[in-house]
């Protein structure tokens, strides 16, 4: 069976361009705004959606995504509500893949089997769980693959050639290359260095390689897109969202357009690289 993720990356590749992967936190700043934003992302040019599952202690995230998670939790977001959001999104959108990204504890407490069943039924395509390295594959990765969900692994600058096979062994959907050693939204990656790293990973796998952490502007996205199968933008979208909130951190009519506007600019930039390459 071809998965939504495989189909989407293949379609982008056939257009000779990288996929734009967008990250938002589920329930940020509130459930309804977040759902409206989720529904608007494909139209704005998002090829793949990463939906952050809020957690009180996001050890790998920078201040922007930490704050987004806390806003969502304060507004009452739970893992069950996040799955319900995907279900509702999926009712109107059959093709854009949705990947849940977060930390293990909420899933562990929800119950791994129950979670996999509910996520699959809701229309989730893949999982990125930051604190589950290959050493803990029995926890969720192997059951997820069995349940038909892609388990997307992070590869990092510290993942050397010796370790890479272990990291890639049970990875499916795509490989998420973390372009810097650091947290989300921190330093800006050097496109040349990233390009070499992507090439190194592609020597070990046939899966698409998407690059994220620290990509903020359309120009940076374009530079990364030249050497990767996908570009992930997260913190910059969250910053745009935060900038649209009122003093009480509540959504305003400007909130959804603030994010989709940036997504459109990013999409154009990423597609622009394809045109340049095709000419």
């Amino acid at each position: 069976m071809t998965t939504r993720l495989a189909t989407r990356f293949k379609a982008c590749a056939e257009q000779g361009r990288a996929a734009l992967v967008t990250f938002i936190t589920a329930g940020d700043p509130d459930h309804d705004t977040s759902l409206a934003l989720l529904k608007a992302l494909p139209g704005a040019g998002a090829d793949v959606i990463e939906l952050g599952v809020p957690f009180t202690d996001p050890m790998a995230d920078g201040p922007a995504i930490q704050a987004a998670g806390l806003r969502a939790l304060k507004a009452g977001q739970t893992l069950a509500k996040t799955l319900a959001m995907v279900r509702e999104f999926r009712a109107g959108e059959a093709d854009t893949p949705v990947v849940l990204m977060g930390y293990y504890n909420p899933i562990y407490i929800y119950g791994v089997e129950r979670f996999l069943k509910d996520a699959k039924e809701a229309g989730v395509d893949g999982l990125i769980v930051v604190d589950l390295p290959p050493e803990e594959d029995n926890e969720l990765c192997l059951p997820a693959l069995k349940a038909g969900l892609d388990f997307i692994r992070l590869a990092t600058p510290t993942t050397d050639d010796r370790r890479l096979p272990a990291v890639l062994a049970n990875t499916a959907g795509f490989v998420y290359y973390v372009s810097i050693t650091g947290i989300t939204g921190a330093a800006t990656p050097d496109a040349d260095v990233v390009g070499q790293a992507v090439a190194r990973i592609k020597r070990h796998t046939g899966l698409p390689v998407a690059v994220g952490f620290g990509v903020k502007t359309p120009a940076q996205a374009a530079a990364i897109a030249a050497g990767a199968d996908g570009v992930v933008v997260g913190s910059a979208l969250i910053d745009a969202l935060r900038g649209s909130l009122d003093a009480g951190e509540r959504a305003t009519p400007a909130t959804v357009p603030a994010v989709t506007g940036l997504v459109s600019a990013l999409a154009e930039a990423v597609r622009g690289v394809a045109r340049a390459a095709a000419e």
Partner: peptide
């Protein structure tokens, strides 16, 4: 166990 981000695993 070892529930950490991949960046830290080699370390």
């Amino acid at each position: 166990g070892r529930f950490v981000a991949e960046t830290l695993m080699p370390l």
